[in-house]
Nucleic acid binder design. Structure first.
Lengths: 335, 335
DNA sequence: CTGAAAGCGCTTACAG
DNA sequence: CTGAAAGCGCTTACAG
């Protein structure tokens, strides 16, 4: 309601001086600055970022598009990005597109209209061309999931390698038959982790039998359902590698409901390293991603891209770490 | 890059017609509209919401300020608000202030500068006056936590009543000594739930002994720590009412680490009804809040306030529901 | 050090 | 149905 014009006339100066004074820019007399500041506070002036953005052609806002804020992996990631944004005094705009491809595109278009300065994408949308079209001209960083778009920097982990570590850990414990509860087929990450599972088995001279793969959803229910199915065939395996921690949590619940002891009757390893894994019963062995860092790094990369005229595309792979909890142990029985 | 001016000159019309045509407003010839639309797509025109907002004096953006996106209660709430925003074709801006009072005020100021049309607040900031000052002139809805500010509508649940239900349930099962792991002292909701705990005990003619109250943090670690403390005094109680589900999850972990069986040796009830409670071992008895609805309703109320000149302040209390899981049972031992 | 003026990309009375 | 013009609240060359 009160604008620079009001402040200017009340202080008896021009709006140019007001703008400069209120932004701490040089070229205004000390006394003038003080007067303007005083008047501004008296009048209760508050800057209008919309007007500023229109004028400066930058909104100091970046966006993060993610599939499911409800999966605890993402809030942690959000914190990382948020921190990066805060450090640069930028605002973070969240778009929770779900895994819905259409909503994703609509959200992306809305962000473009909002004139965000850059976008961090967690998605493997089937139509990369459309995505690239919409994001044309605005810096993009792909997070966690790979983006076909070569125009974007990528930060993530090596999911295959992580999965291999998980399975190798089980093999080392003595397991020979290891089942896998996979993620949704449409998500690239699912395929990577499954591939890692198969590789680790094969490297150990064991068969990666597709009968031992059940599909999940990356959510608890998926792990639970998969568990109910697979627990009927406990004679075929002694351990389970779940595609992510939520799946593992669901599997634990299935075990509990069937009275199957973890890790005595079946060992379990998850993936992600969400905070919750330290508080499940038993605590979960998992391949931890540096979640916060992933988000933070993605933010930093994005800001570099924003402030550089011709940004180089980088691909940054952060290390995963096997965290051994109480859900994995040597097999007490043979499959 | 391409503006209405470009479209206008390319189509041989005025920017007024372009604006009207592109916004589907009446008063433009059918043929003209078509031509303008064609030219706009050819040129790859995309609306600039910043300019529109400056002109229209509305951003079609609402903000939600919350303490901790990492607590699974909030993402679910976010979904509710998000849905309400989507329904109105508004954008939701999230501010994750933490429980940090200073950051909260800074965030609020940033939102004001961003010219959001309204704000949903989850907070009980000590300095309500400051909050009211910053929010002056913009519609506010208080969510989940009560806001001293009488200028805002409130939507939430009756925490005392909910807590009473939890404790009454335990009493009904036969428990007589019920401990409580409280939330952070600074949060009003903690006090309410604790009061409910005390009331239920007293109504049943039992003593609400303050020695049976341990403080937590609303996070897993708090419940875990509290559990380690209190489990040394298992002879003093047979059941625990945790201030929220995350606390209960932490307590379960403490029980597991101490080898204490739930519910055989100690019963447990949580509060919130987060999704996870269905997948803990054992599944958690809890007082479920209609989380999604709370968020959705807050959004609706906010939009009403935004679109009404003189909005009435309402206080909407949504019902909680006791969900009986496997963590509560009749006491097998006497305290 | 200070100000008049143009411009950011839209929308919307106001005239025709 | 169509357009010229003003205005939204800022910032920033450009002159002095």
């Amino acid at each position: 309601v009160v604008t620079v014009y009001d402040v200017a006339s009340a202080a008896g100066v021009s709006i140019a001086s007001v703008s400069r004074a209120l932004n701490g820019q040089p070229g205004v007399g000390r006394a003038t600055v003080e007067k303007i500041q005083r008047v501004a506070t008296e009048l209760g002036w508050s800057p209008n970022d919309i007007a500023r953005s229109l004028s400066e052609k930058t909104t100091r806002t970046i966006a993060l598009v993610l599939p499911d804020i409800t999966n605890p992996f993402f809030p942690e990631l959000v914190k990382g990005v948020q921190t990066a944004a805060d450090e640069r005094h930028n605002t973070l705009l969240l778009a929770n597109s779900g895994e819905d491809a259409e909503k994703f595109l609509r959200d992306l278009e809305a962000l473009r209209r909002k004139q965000v300065d850059g976008v961090i994408l967690i998605s493997d949308h089937p139509d990369q061309t459309r995505v690239a079209e919409i994001c044309a001209g605005i810096p993009v960083v792909a997070l966690d999931r790979d983006l076909g778009d070569p125009g974007a920097s990528v930060v993530g982990v090596d999911h295959e390698e992580g999965a291999r570590k998980a399975v190798a850990h089980l093999i080392e414990l003595g397991h020979r038959r290891i089942a896998h509860i996979a993620g949704p087929a449409a998500i690239e990450v699912s395929a990577r982790r499954r591939a890692g599972w198969a590789q680790a088995l094969e490297e150990a001279g064991l068969a990666a039998r597709s009968e031992l793969v059940v599909s999940g959803t990356f959510l608890e229910e998926g792990g639970f359902e998969a568990g109910l199915q697979i627990l009927d065939r406990l004679d075929e395996f002694t351990a389970v590698f779940a595609a992510n921690d939520l799946t593992a949590v669901g599997f634990l619940a299935a075990c509990a409901s069937r009275g199957v002891q973890v890790p005595h009757e079946v060992s379990l390893v998850g993936f992600d390293g969400i905070h919750l894994t330290r508080y499940t019963t038993p605590t979960l062995t998992t391949v931890a991603q540096p979640i916060f860092d992933l988000g933070h790094r993605a933010g930093e990369l994005l800001f570099e891209a924003i402030s550089t005229e011709d940004p180089v595309k980088v691909k940054e792979i952060l290390p995963t770490r096997l965290v051994v909890g109480a859900s994995s142990a040597a097999p007490r029985r043979s499959a």
